[in-house]
């Protein structure tokens, strides 16, 4: 894998070609640095809430009903420039403001910018080759103080890697769970195909 940098990075993002890295809206070309591209905080949020059920249940149990993962999160929307307060120890799901489309031979990492890491907000996400959508960001405030974030601010940075081979994101059933999302989606970990197999394995040991 080769890190895409400098003019090559800029040319790819500003190009209209299908094989380019597509980022929309790019509000300021200065977001494109020599090694990374700054991306902005989106406007849709899923805020984790405490419910009467003491834990989120992921394991499959035949015949048993379970509370849906999305019910542990509350949806809220903002406009660009609005504020969003992130409380200590709170999980909030959001996305980048930008819609990203990656060619099949480009993979990306998303990391919080240093200015936000210093406030206690860490982001560390990877984006599969061929991804389409607003990049999911899982916010968590590790600090002791609530932080007032501004919607549209440059909160993260992305670095892009070119691979030797194409990867077909659309044809991989496991990876289509979050395909084309433009707003945050609650975890679909409970839909992992391995879980029923693991449940059968557990029962076969009895």
């Amino acid at each position: 894998m080769q890190l895409i940098t400098g003019q090559l990075l800029k040319d790819s993002i500003l190009s209209d070609e299908d094989s380019s890295i597509f980022l929309d809206p790019l509000l300021n070309e200065e977001q494109i640095g020599s090694v990374t591209v700054d991306v902005r905080l989106g406007y849709d949020f899923l805020v984790s809430v405490v419910t009467r059920k003491p834990y989120i249940e992921l394991a499959t149990q035949s015949g048993a009903s379970r509370r849906g993962v999305s019910s542990y999160f509350q949806e809220t929307r903002r406009e660009v420039g609005d504020r969003f307060v992130l409380y200590p120890d709170q999980v909030v799901l959001t996305t980048t403001l930008e819609y990203l489309s990656l060619p099949p031979n480009v993979y990306a990492d998303v990391l919080s910018r240093s200015s936000y890491t210093r406030l206690g907000v860490h982001v560390n996400t990877m984006v599969q080759p061929g991804f389409k959508g607003c990049v999911p960001i899982e916010l968590y405030n590790h600090g002791n103080n609530a932080i007032e974030l501004v919607v549209g601010s440059r909160i993260c940075q992305m670095r892009f890697f070119k691979m030797a081979e194409d990867a077909n994101y659309m044809n991989d059933a496991n990876m289509r769970k979050y395909y084309g999302d433009v707003r945050p989606a609650a975890s679909r970990a409970d839909q992992d195909k391995d879980l029923p197999v693991l449940e059968s394995a557990r029962q076969s040991l009895d």
Binding site: D24, P25, L27, G81, L97, Y99, M170, G180, V182, R183
Partner: peptide, 28 residues
């Protein structure tokens, strides 16, 4: 290879996001 339900979701999402991007660019 995409289900009709997903086609409906993705196309509506693309329209919603295209409109929102226009709003954001104008505000900016």
């Amino acid at each position: 290879a995409v289900s009709k339900q997903e086609i409906m979701r993705i196309i509506n999402d693309l329209i919603e996001k295209s409109i929102r991007n226009r709003m954001i660019k104008l505000k900016w």
